[in-house]
């Protein structure tokens, strides 16, 4: 009980102070651009809980899931090949570094030209932003596999499939997960940006609409909702990570 109290204090103390400060600051000022949390909270249910869940939040999240999923499949697939084959790695690594260095949002106009303004464009934008950290981390993970582990697989004559599923993939998982974590953050950014350019629904689209219609508290409520979604997605990611990497955590604890 005492521990729970301490946890609650350390987790919520700063947010509560910030919210109080924000409330006082906005209630005592005349500007309409920074409404008080009370005003935002008042519009929140009507803005997001009446139809917006299926009309905006769900489309946004499905596009994020599709783009992130594609990036994961492509990144791990190509990354494993490149990590295993040295000539391929020497050929492609400079290009990967270049692509990764390009800020993903600038690709939205180009992808719009090629893929139009539908869901395909948004998914492509998200996937393109997400793929590089996963790809580069997979290459590093596969390259870093202990040779003794590979020799063991070879001396017991594992087939290519068994070697991939039971040795290479699990051995590279800690690095792949690290890459996926970076990609998830990029994916959320790309999700919003793609909707701000050209869309008829979605979170990014709505935030821009509210801004244009001067619905300032509604706009802020969208920003807060995005923050909460980010926290939620991270929590889900953490749960999956813990399941996948129980062995990794245990191994390192045992080595200490």
């Amino acid at each position: 009980m005492k521990r729970l109290g301490a946890w609650a204090f350390f987790t919520f103390a700063v947010p509560v102070v910030l919210i109080i400060a924000w409330t006082i600051a906005s209630e005592t000022s005349d500007t309409i651009y920074f409404p008080s949390p009370i005003a935002i909270l008042a519009v929140f249910p009507d803005t997001w809980f009446s139809g917006a869940i299926s009309g905006d939040i769900f489309p946004s999240l499905s596009r994020l899931a599709a783009g992130f999923g594609l990036a994961l499949i492509a990144g791990v697939g190509v990354g494993t090949l490149v990590g295993m084959l040295k000539p391929l790695r020497l050929l492609l690594e400079p290009i990967f570094e270049l692509f990764r260095a390009v800020p993903p949002p600038v690709l939205v106009p180009i992808i719009m030209l090629v893929a139009g303004i539908g869901d395909g464009m948004k998914i492509a934008v998200i996937a393109f932003g997400c793929v590089w950290p996963i790809l580069i981390n997979t290459v590093a993970g596969v390259r870093g596999i202990d040779e003794v582990q590979l020799d063991t697989a070879a001396s017991y004559r594992f087939s290519g499939r068994l070697r991939f599923v039971s040795v290479i993939l699990p051995a590279a998982t800690p690095q792949i997960v690290a890459g996926a974590r970076q990609s998830l953050a990029i994916g959320i950014i790309m999700m919003v940006i793609s909707e701000m350019f050209a869309a008829t629904n979605g979170l990014g689209f709505n935030i821009i609409q509210f801004q244009r219609l001067f619905l300032i508290p509604e706009m802020w409520s969208g920003i807060i909702l995005l923050g909460l979604l980010g926290v939620g997605l991270n929590a889900v990611f953490k749960i999956i990570e813990n399941r996948l990497l129980t062995w990794h955590v245990g191994l390192h604890a045992a080595e200490k």
């Binding site: 202990d146 003794v148 582990q149 020799d151 063991t152 039971s166 040795v167 699990p170 051995a171 998982t173 062995w247 990794h248 191994l251």
Partner: peptide, 13 residues
């Protein structure tokens, strides 16, 4: 069977 048992056994299994 190798000397490096900790490396030849797969820690994820």
């Amino acid at each position: 069977v190798l000397q490096e048992y900790s490396r030849s056994l797969y820690p994820w299994m």
